[in-house]
């Protein structure tokens, strides 16, 4: 029996009998639902009322992200949200970057569904790292990052790197309070990835085209990667690099130092 009005279990649509749940699944308004702006009037039920909500679905996340951004900006911490598909080379790049930055203060938040492998790899460089396991969750959210910031207590004027869960979809929609999203795209993934997952590359300020040492082995066309990145995001900055050979690392380090300096000045 329908728990709203006590109608029978099936709903007649044309010559089909649908279960009540199926009628809802197919978005079918039947006799007690969706009777227009006047609302519904079913004997024995009070008149329905319309509540204007006008609230973004992710508004709770966005509010916490704004709070994170306030705290991190007050500390002059440059916060970067590293996003990519699984295995593009985020952790490898972070380890090389940490070593190259020498004694610059920094901290890392690692997001993965399972294991603390990546945080262990970061800690092996001597940098503080917190591992967040999202379980079934496919992205980090602002609440998880707020808790990690509270534990890590990033130093004034430091770098905070957040390695998001490897996933080109949902992390695009979840603001964490970062200064910029950095999209990592390895040259083994295929030139069309920006076109297939436009949201992520639209949200990113910088794209790092990584594993360039492998380009000759997989017939990668680097300028096609760049053209497709610019097609979805005409203002994106792009740097090519290889964590393995170190090619292009200098430009990435210069980008980081310039962004940190600009952040401190605000």
């Amino acid at each position: 029996m329908c728990s709203v009005c006590g109608c029978g279990d099936t709903v007649r649509v044309g010559d089909l009998d649908l279960s009540h749940a199926d009628a809802h699944r197919f978005g079918l308004a039947h006799h007690h639902h969706g009777l227009g702006p006047a609302g519904l009037s079913v004997p024995g039920l009070t008149q329905s009322r319309l509540i204007e909500v006008e609230t973004a679905i992710l508004s709770k996340n966005d509010a916490i992200a704004t709070e994170n951004r306030h705290i991190l900006t007050a500390l002059g911490v440059l916060t970067l949200n590293l996003v990519s598909s699984p295995g593009s080379g985020k952790t490898t790049l972070l380890c090389k970057t940490i070593t190259a930055l020498g004694d610059a203060p920094l901290a890392v938040i690692e997001g993965d569904q399972q294991t603390s492998h990546d945080a262990d790899r970061i800690r092996a460089t001597g940098a503080p790292a917190i591992q967040i396991n999202t379980g079934k969750g496919c992205h980090l959210d602002a609440q998880m990052v707020a808790a990690a910031i509270n534990d890590l207590r990033p130093r004034t004027g430091s770098y905070l790197f957040i390695e998001n869960v490897g996933n080109l979809v949902c992390p695009a929609a979840f603001d964490l309070g970062e200064d910029a999203k950095v999209a990592i795209l390895s040259v083994t993934e295929g030139e069309d990835k920006p076109l297939k997952y436009p949201d992520m590359f639209t949200a990113a300020s910088l794209a790092l085209l990584t594993k360039t040492d492998l380009a000759p082995h997989c017939d990668a066309d680097l300028s096609a990667y760049e053209a497709n990145l610019r097609r979805v995001n005409p203002t994106i900055e792009i740097l090519r690099l290889s964590s393995r050979t170190g090619d292009g690392m200098d430009a990435w380090l210069a980008w980081l130092r310039a962004r940190l300096a600009a952040k401190g000045a605000t």
Partner: peptide, 15 residues
């Protein structure tokens, strides 16, 4: 893109 990425609840009919 400028707008067009909205995802919000407009209203609900409740009892």
């Amino acid at each position: 893109p400028q707008g067009g990425d909205e995802m919000r609840i407009k209203n609900m009919e409740v009892v």
